[in-house]
Amino acid sequence: MTATATALPNRAKRNLTIAKAMAEALAQEMRRDPSVLVMGEDIAALGGVFGNTRGLLEEFGPARIRDTPISETAFIGAAVGMAAVGMRPVVELMFVDFFGVCMDAIYNMAAKNCYFSGGQAGVPMVLMTSVGGGYGDAGQHSQCLYGTFAHLPGMKVVVPSNAYDAKGLMVSAIRDNNPVIFMFHKALQGMGWLGTVQGSINDVPEDAYTVPFGQATIARTGKDVTIVGLGATVHLALDAAQELIAAGIDAEVVDLRSLVPLDRATVNASVKKTGRLLVVDEDYMSYGVSGEIIASVVEAGTVLKAPPKRIAFPDIPIPFSPTLERPALPSAEKIVATVTAMARGGR
């Protein structure tokens, strides 16, 4: 089911932040299915450092909304075990950067148990984790690591850019019989103290709905160039597209939404139409999402009017100082400059 907000009749608009949309999805699925529970650091009384479990402790109590010790290996491993015996745990890894202390539970167990058991042991769990920088927290608290997780087989990986998708993707994630990595960007979360990209706040239907995995959306239609983004970079691309109008360039913006499975068809169809491709990713440049998207288009044999380009975080640890970090991050200005140069070639 792909209910769009506008398709639902007789409903007042309800603009939510991603944090609220995630919490609502969790609450609704917990009401519907007693096997769903949430575990993580500071997710109960505090409601999550990023607000996505706010109000859940009050409704569901400490047995199903479990604050954990700072023991990621143990509680993410515990989620794998819970999933093995019929629960549907949702666990939070507070910052994706902390994956180093618990990756075995994630990529050697959650991601491989289904396969190694010949399909006997599915692992229906969700790992939600915050990503992204730009607020001066340096490289142990600012990475995206989309490519790191999407690279490893056996896990689905989703990245919402707005509250509507966040709710629908979370509902899909909880109902999915596989491990799903749900990566939410701090700049989109709707926590005042992190600033909030306004475009991430949108109309969210109250009733539960799903956003299917493996379906990218066209966030803006255009004919001259395809800009592919995910999470926060979708909004940079949309801002850039707005500015490019003045230069007579009509950009199409694709929001990937899901990295595994990846909707190569939508990307390819868009690039076939525009003949130009720019991928904008906040994750590290090399060996990542940007290279994968470009490879998909090249492999499909799509004829390009200009060489494909990418804007991504350079292959350096994310520095602290704003004068080092900000210029290294993707930005609307960089997109405008790159697209303008691309459009000069063969229009």
Binding site: I70, D97, Q140
Partner: peptide
């Protein structure tokens, strides 16, 4: 560190001091 590390990543090799933001590491 020339601004690369910030408050959670202070390194002073002259006095054998370092710190890190990942718990227990």
């Amino acid at each position: 560190s020339g601004g690369r590390g910030g408050h959670m990543h202070l390194f002073d090799a002259a006095v054998n001091f370092s710190c890190s933001g990942i718990i227990a590491q």
